[in-house]
């Protein structure tokens, strides 16, 4: 199938910093945190974020669901969110009031799912220097995370995903589209 090719201008967008991005309490996790750990398979009949949140990290870190507070942040190591494509994982975290997940690196599907549902994944190569329970500030404009007086650089979000973040997620982004011209780059 041949289709006419148009170039869509890429808008320059900056992630809008929300107030909750300051002074966020850290829940620290290690490498290869899989989506089965974030939300176990037996809860996948639930689609509501608030309900899912009650079982976030159940069996892996039971105090999380009990003690997490609105505006807390998750800091992971390498390959955060690997495994199953379940979108219930970012939804469970959002239901728990988490708006940002910082990690040294993310698994591809989790990264994309998070942006689609409005959870901000932030790649910070030095995330392992941040400690559990610490309070951090995400400074998008300066491209860094501030923790304990130190600054750790973060990586910019891929350009084509910024439009989705700016719209507030893929649902909102899709609403603004009548059709999508296939093969546009």
């Amino acid at each position: 199938m041949m289709a006419a090719k148009k170039t869509v201008p890429v808008k320059k967008v900056v992630i809008r910093a929300a107030p909750a991005m300051k002074n966020m309490r850290v829940w620290k996790f290690g490498d290869d945190i899989d989506t089965d750990a974030i939300i176990p398979g037996r809860f996948l009949t639930i689609n509501n974020p608030d309900e899912l949140a009650k079982h976030a990290f159940e069996g892996t870190r039971d105090e999380f669901a009990k003690k997490v507070k609105e505006g807390d942040v998750i800091v992971g190591g390498r390959n955060f969110g690997c495994g199953s494509s379940r979108e219930h994982a970012p939804l469970a975290l959002m239901g728990a009031g988490v708006k940002v997940v910082v990690a040294r690196s993310f698994a591809r599907i989790f990264f994309r799912n998070s942006i689609n549902v409005g959870l901000l994944p932030v790649v910070c190569p030095q995330a392992d220097k941040i400690a559990d329970g610490e309070r951090i500030t995400l400074n998008i404009r300066d491209g860094c995370i501030e923790a304990d007086g130190k600054k750790y650089p973060i990586e910019p979000v891929p350009v084509f995903m910024q439009g989705i973040i700016d719209a507030g997620g893929l649902v909102e982004y899709a609403k603004s589209l009548k059709e999508v011209p296939a093969c546009t780059r």
Binding site: R112, G169, L170, V171, A174
Partner: peptide
């Protein structure tokens, strides 16, 4: 390739 549910909605 595997995708999430919102991508699938799209």
């Amino acid at each position: 390739t595997g995708i999430g549910s919102t991508d699938m909605g799209f």
